[in-house]
Design a protein around this nucleic acid. Structure first.
Length: 464
RNA sequence: GGCGGCAUAGCCAAGUGGUAAGGCAGAGGACUGCAAAUCCUUUAUCCCCAGUUCAAAUCUGGGUGCCGCCUCCA
């Protein structure tokens, strides 16, 4: 498995710290609102990565946090006249609704910042003891000048960063790049007791602390959006390596942005679509396929047209599966022909190609291409007169590969007896060349959401 | 100013030295009572210029255009 590591700017062979295990931490949402499709990208792509590593036999421990206390949380809670806790509880629930719709599996741990305040205080104390942090008034700051590797992830020297810094030098800070570990309470803000007085943790410290707590001092993989490289991940490294004096993460994975009209989609620009918005018009599985149709590090544009393309592509996948299931239930049991043997020999090549794509830095676009090649092979096999056994093998391969990408989750289900009877009635009408009746039944069923297709192998149905 | 990314058909998109995957849309054809599904065929001076090489979408240099990070952001 090769992964592009932001730290080294190269693809590297993945070697876990502990044999057979993957410990990964992915930065999760700040739960002050519904998440948008830009947020959804890392959730989806790293969910796929996790599925794939499990498929490869690794024991994966996946942690994704919820940031449930920060400036935005406080501001939104004030606007809505509810507590920060109430706001967080609500949007954590909404997170899971949307994540479920996208078939994003639950992490092994979803730690919340507010439930780790004591751990954070202890961590900050260690930083102070090591001379890497200082108290200024009721705040505590990380002393970036005291950490020699500061800037190594983003490839920036502290000097360069300072030249470009747009940030105003806080009165209490020694250096413009220093960042808050602990913020003293301001009027009306929620606060926790600490050695520095009542206050709340800075944003960056939670990830260092929770990654350390759930995954250890050195983790295998840390992932998130490219916009977190600086300052968030840079600061996490400073904190974690400052305290532990060990590498924090072995591989840093960062996904590219979702753009609207070629501009980054972000809450601050206001040009975003939430997953909740999209779900009103599209099945969220379409969004999932859309996300996987390009490589995760490339930027992707978002538009309705592109979702429609993804929708059509997804339907092709479902058609292939439906057709296969139909063939299985109707194929004869018979001895395999030479053609069948050839087909069955070829089948594993698709899995091999798929794996090759995935192991090249999670190239889901290429992997999807392999699935579509498999689909053509399957569709072509329909009239080869293969045995049920052969079709079953095709189905298993298709399900395996699409399952690794988290696609084709919906099951077809069964038809009501009433509708079953109508289909039989139509078949009878067709046999009698009573096209008027046959077409009427087909139209009526379409209104019920059932589409009938008369294939060379027989009549088939699917839901709209 | 510093750091980084991208440019492949109408749209989307893989492909890091050997002569352009795949999806969507369109066109033509096959199958079909019709429709659908499916299959076959079809659409690319790989942004420009120069260089390296037997060979370049791929490497090097120089352009051009677009985007991102350096402030909260996935």
């Amino acid at each position: 498995m090769k992964l592009y590591n932001t730290m080294t700017k190269r693809k590297e062979e993945f070697i876990p710290l502990h044999e057979g295990e993957v410990r990964m931490y992915s930065c999760g949402p700040t739960v002050y609102d519904y998440f948008h499709i830009g947020n959804a990208r890392p959730f989806i792509i790293f969910d796929v990565f996790r599925r794939y590593m499990e498929y490869k036999g690794y024991k994966v421990t996946f942690v994704q946090n919820f940031t449930d206390i920060d400036d935005k949380m406080i501001q939104r809670a004030n606007e809505e006249e509810i507590t920060v806790k109430e706001l967080a509880d609500r949007f954590i629930e909404e997170y899971f609704k949307d994540a479920d719709g996208l078939y994003i599996r639950r992490a092994d741990y979803h730690p919340k910042a507010t439930e780790h305040i004591d751990d954070m205080i202890a961590f900050i104390q260690k930083l102070i003891e090591k001379g890497l942090a200082y108290q200024a008034g009721n705040d505590v700051y990380f002393d970036t000048n005291a950490f020699k590797d500061y800037g190594k992830l983003s490839g920036q020297s502290l000097e360069d960063l300072e030249i470009g810094a747009r940030i105003e030098i806080g009165k209490a800070k020694r250096n413009p790049m220093d960042f808050a570990l602990w913020k003293g309470q301001k009027p009306g803000e929620p606060a926790w007791d600490s050695p520095w007085g009542p206050g709340r943790p800075g944003w960056h410290i939670e990830c260092s602390v929770m990654a350390n707590k759930y995954l250890g001092e050195t983790i295998d993989i840390h992932s998130g959006g490219q916009d977190l490289i600086f300052p968030h991940h840079e600061n996490e490294i400073a904190q974690s390596e400052g305290v532990n004096e060990k590498p924090f993460a072995r591989y840093w994975l960062h996904n590219g942005y979702i753009n609207i009209d070629n501009r980054k989609m972000s809450k601050s620009l206001g040009n975003f679509f939430t997953i909740r918005d999209i779900s009103a018009e599209f099945d969220l599985e379409v969004v999932r396929l859309f996300m996987l149709s390009s490589h995760y590090r490339n930027p992707i544009n978002f538009s309705r047209e592109l979702l429609e393309q993804a929708e059509a592509a997804l339907e092709r996948l479902y058609n292939a599966r439906d057709n296969l299931e139909y063939l299985i239930s109707n194929a004869e049991d018979k001895a395999p022909s030479d053609e069948e043997r050839e087909f069955l020999e070829k089948l594993p090549e698709f899995t091999a190609d798929f794996e090759r794509a995935m192991e090249d830095d999670i190239n889901t676009a290429d992997a999807l291409g392999v699935i579509f090649e498999l689909v053509r092979e399957i569709n072509t096999s329909a009239d080869k007169g293969l045995s049920a056994n052969a079709h079953q093998a095709s189905l298993e391969t298709l399900n395996k590969l699409t399952g690794l990408l988290g696609l084709l989750n919906k099951q077809k289900g069964k038809l009501d007896e009433e509708i079953e009877a109508l289909i039989q009635e139509r078949e009878k009408a067709r046999a009698e060349k009573n096209w008027a009746l046959a077409d009427k039944i087909r139209d009526d069923l379409k209104k019920e959401g059932i589409i009938l297709e008369d294939t060379p192998q027989g009549v088939r149905w699917k839901r709209v």
